[in-house]
């Protein structure tokens, strides 16, 4: 990371693993459960959140000295709402089918805890460049989990990846389906997403003992 100082690089790298917004802070779970049945939707959601969080952090950071602290939540909401509307309109214009799949969850980015959390915890106290890096880092950490969950749910639930039939055709019985394999319908239901996220948390914590809380 020649471009960034070590401190700045950590802003991006920390949320990827040891301070991951989903698996460590347990924020943004709703969308991680709701839209990860397909890998494509997970990726689009990750990119959308990256745009909103990156831009939002910069805007809030620029305004941090003029926002009266009593009404800062309202101001933050206005900023997020404006950015989310942009994302929503872009999706509707250029990827209509996908925006239908994501349906209400694009709008619900506004209530994604990660975004308000980063505004409150970071952007209100740091400069725009560092806030931008923090936003990108956190949304990368969020997107990483979304994509992992989406990968396993689509692969095991529908036998496809990004719509490609990687395991063969279930109706014509080719590939794996020829020997009796069947898709796991449980993977398409939201409870299984929670279990997959739980397994990721389990693996992460058993690899890094420092993350285990004292009882």
């Amino acid at each position: 990371m020649g471009l960034l100082s070590k401190k700045d690089a950590n802003l991006i790298l920390d949320p990827l693993a040891d301070n991951n917004p989903i698996t460590i802070q347990v924020l943004g779970i709703c969308s991680a459960l709701a839209i990860t049945a397909e890998l494509k939707a997970s990726i689009v959601m990750a990119v959308s959140v990256m745009f909103v969080l990156g831009m939002g952090n910069v805007v809030i950071s620029l305004m941090r000295n003029i926002i009266p602290s009593k009404i800062r939540i309202i101001v933050q909401l206005v900023v997020v709402a404006a950015l989310v509307i942009i994302v929503d309109q872009v999706l509707k214009a250029f990827a209509y089918e996908l925006s239908k799949t994501l349906s209400v969850f694009v709008g619900l980015i506004i209530t994604n805890c990660i975004i308000m959390g980063r505004f409150e915890a970071f952007a209100l106290a740091n400069g725009p460049w560092r806030s931008f890096l923090d936003g990108i880092g956190n949304s990368l950490g969020y997107g990483l989990i979304l994509i992992i969950v989406g990968f396993f749910r689509e692969l095991l639930g529908s036998g496809t990846l990004l719509g490609f039939k990687v395991l063969g055709d279930p109706i014509e019985k080719t590939g794996l389906y020829a020997i009796g394999y069947e898709n796991n319908g449980f993977m398409l239901l939201s409870p299984m997403a929670l279990i997959v996220v739980g397994i990721i948390i389990w693996i992460q914590r058993s690899r890094n003992k420092a993350l285990i809380e004292e009882n």
Partner: peptide, 10 residues
């Protein structure tokens, strides 16, 4: 329950 939700046709 896992069998029921994962492979309902069976």
């Amino acid at each position: 329950a896992f069998l029921f939700f994962a492979y309902p046709t069976w």
